[in-house]
Write a protein that binds this DNA or RNA. Sequence first.
DNA 1: TATTGTTATACTCTATAACTATA
DNA 2: TATAGTTATAGAGTATAACAATA
Lengths: 163, 163
Amino acid sequence: MPDHDGLNSVQLETYFALTEAAGLLQQAVERQLRAHGGLSYIQFHILARLDASEKPLTMTELADGVVYSRSGLTYQAGLLDQAGLIKRKSSPQDERATLVTITAAGRRRLRRVMPGHIEVAKTLLFDGLSDADVRTLGDIMSRVRDHIHQTSVRQSSRRRTTQ
Amino acid sequence: MPDHDGLNSVQLETYFALTEAAGLLQQAVERQLRAHGGLSYIQFHILARLDASEKPLTMTELADGVVYSRSGLTYQAGLLDQAGLIKRKSSPQDERATLVTITAAGRRRLRRVMPGHIEVAKTLLFDGLSDADVRTLGDIMSRVRDHIHQTSVRQSSRRRTTQ
DNA sequence: TATTGTTATACTCTATAACTATA
DNA sequence: TATAGTTATAGAGTATAACAATA
């Protein structure tokens, strides 16, 4: 197999196909969320995580999911708060922490965009694949995701130690 | 299989695994390009396409590859031009068009970032996969990419007809 | 009249560093 | 002294619309 700077041609094609397809999917999803829900993808993600959580989440817990600077999260949470989609209050246990909860309006907004969101995924991703493909893809990408989680100790979401 | 708003659970897991893994990979790649080459991913992509092309490309041809507004491309091309990595001149055939070529410095910059770029892909994506996985993933994602290309008539890269 | 590309402008997002307050 | 979070600020990127020039 010919090597192009360290990747063989099968790897190179796989890499390009993955990044291009995922990028196109991502853009389509963002367009839909913006158009039908007035939400950025990150805002959607924050709402979805709060909706799935039994208990309120702190800003730090939220930041751990989104690979993100803390100020960026504060900014996005500020927008969601201002729109009445989340509520923030300081934690009774640790008064440094902020507890974030999704509001009823937040859940409504989520329910409003979900069908379109799902529709994009179905149209662009699943319509072209067999059930077996979907299972295989899910298996492979789950392993990739876990591998990346183990490998890159997501430095940007973690606070620099001191300083 | 239980349906969640139109996707079964296998599809949902596949969708999440794909978007999360691809997102993490993308962020890692962007960090590397920025740190080791001072390039945004789009600038890298523009350079790579010019490098691979036998002939100069017009702005329109470049915009067709990147799903992008024309003004955004002009902005990015302006930065690359200013940095001496590309050269622009108006086409002799069609004086409305701008022909873009990569400079020697542009190729050098590309060669400089390539090893690190490849390294990220290898470490995060391929280290966790067998050769068979890579072939399978490439096959599936190529079909997804082609399917998306057929489906979404990339409206944002194409100029609105009139108006 | 349509198309290529640029520019002006306004807006969104992101990161860094400084800061407050609590542990 | 370290941690949680916010804020101030500055910069990068993006899109829209208006524009000039050519086909």
